[in-house]
Write a protein that binds this DNA or RNA. Structure first.
Length: 375
DNA sequence: GATACGTGGCG
DNA sequence: TCGCCAAGTAT
């Protein structure tokens, strides 16, 4: 008999228990009812008790922001976005440029571009309402398998199996799945599917994620507090939970170098440019730079500046991206005449904080003129 | 399936 | 200090 069949036979109902012998979903939901996190995109407990569903717009926005991003990092962005754009229709009415500015600093900027594209699609092709099925959601920009399932379950009560990094960790430990990720993802989904309850699929998904985030953590999991410990395979085997999930070894990060140029006008404005819409930092604002290659030496790149000038080396900035490390030599020229070019503009010192500047660009600016991005 | 794609926090 | 990690998606 398989583990999942065994648990599938256990009762699921309105009485959730953490007692030994209760079903997987009953123990999980019982724990969730007591220990769930209160998060801004979730229904308050009193509204949830009345059977209300969460706002699909807020669920969608939070799910996209939370892709590869921590809850503490997301919270202030979520607050600003929902204040500025309370509905998907409002977001669809915004300029892409304003959305990129509001997203600046959160990373993975294709999410912001797809956010706008998705809002437009919902407003124009779906009457301002999100599709209610995972299949319908999956067809929208920036919504993949995980996000489609999560929105369908949480906002529309669909019985979808939601598998994210938390669920992978909980399941590979609970079932001692030794196959390496991401190949084991299919097994995780297949093993979890039968345990998803008909009546609370959204809570079930959020319970798995909360458990992974607060109990079944990557390091030092709090197994003694876990509602699923009694039949956890790695614990029963006496293995170390931290050994799961198994992942392939990571490749070393290459180092790339380049130069960035801070041109200052007499009145303290800085020359910025819009980066191409695709690729690294796509669609964001930035300083003029050289290409970032493994061969170039930013320290001898003053000649590659956007124009002739008295360029002075101002510092070196190091920044780690997902797949390479960047060492950027920053050059500064003062008293530059305000001549704009295609795709470039002068940003006054009191406008700089509101530009769509990625963190690496703010770092470069700060190295040339400390405090300039905070004025 | 492999790779591109950000950032900040933590042990 | 430094590697790992966080509610993935697109190509």
């Amino acid at each position: 008999m398989t583990h999942s069949t065994e648990m599938n036979d256990a009762p699921t109902g309105s009485t959730y228990s953490t007692a030994a012998g209760a079903s997987f979903s009953a123990r999980l939901l019982g724990w969730y009812d007591r220990h769930h996190r209160d998060l801004p995109w979730r229904l308050t407990p009193d509204r949830a008790a009345r059977g209300e569903m969460a706002d699909p717009y807020r669920v969608w926005l939070s799910e996209v922001m939370l892709q590869q991003t921590t809850v503490p990092a997301v919270k202030p962005y979520f607050a600003r976005f929902t204040e500025q754009w309370p509905t998907v229709t409002a977001l669809a009415g915004a300029e892409a440029d304003e959305i990129m500015k509001a997203w600046a600093g959160l990373g993975y900027y294709s999410r912001a571009r797809n956010l706008k594209a998705c809002a437009d699609a919902v407003a124009l092709h779906h009457g301002g309402r999100f599709p209610e099925t995972a299949t319908g959601l999956r067809a929208l920009p920036g919504i993949g398998d995980y996000t489609a399932a999560a929105i369908a379950a949480i906002a529309f009560g669909q019985r979808e199996t939601v598998v994210d990094g938390n669920v992978e960790r909980v399941m590979t430990r609970h079932r001692a799945i030794a196959a390496p990720m991401p190949a084991a993802k299919a097994a995780v989904k297949a093993l979890l599917g039968p345990d998803v309850p008909d009546d609370r699929p959204g809570d079930f998904a959020q319970a798995m994620m909360d458990l992974g985030a607060t109990i079944c953590t990557p390091r030092r999991p709090a197994c003694v507090l876990c509602p699923l410990r009694d039949d956890c395979a790695v614990l029963m085997r006496g293995e170390d939970p931290e050994a799961y999930p198994v992942k392939a070894a990571k490749k070393a990060k290459p180092v790339r170098t380049g130069a960035a140029f801070v041109a200052l006008s007499d009145d303290g404005a800085v020359l910025l440019e819009k980066r191409p819409d695709s690729g690294l930092l796509g669609g964001m604002a930035g300083l003029p730079t050289t290409a970032w290659s493994s061969r170039q030496d930013g320290a001898s790149d003053a000649g590659a500046a956007p124009f002739e000038g008295d360029w002075q080396a101002a510092g070196v900035v190091s920044h780690v991206f997902t797949h390479f490390e960047l060492r950027l030599t920053v050059w500064r020229a003062q008293g530059v005449a305000r001549a704009a070019g295609d795709g470039r503009w002068w940003s006054a010192s009191d406008e700089l904080a509101g530009e769509a500047l990625p963190t690496v660009m703010k770092k470069a600016l700060e190295s040339a003129i400390p405090g300039i991005t905070k004025r």
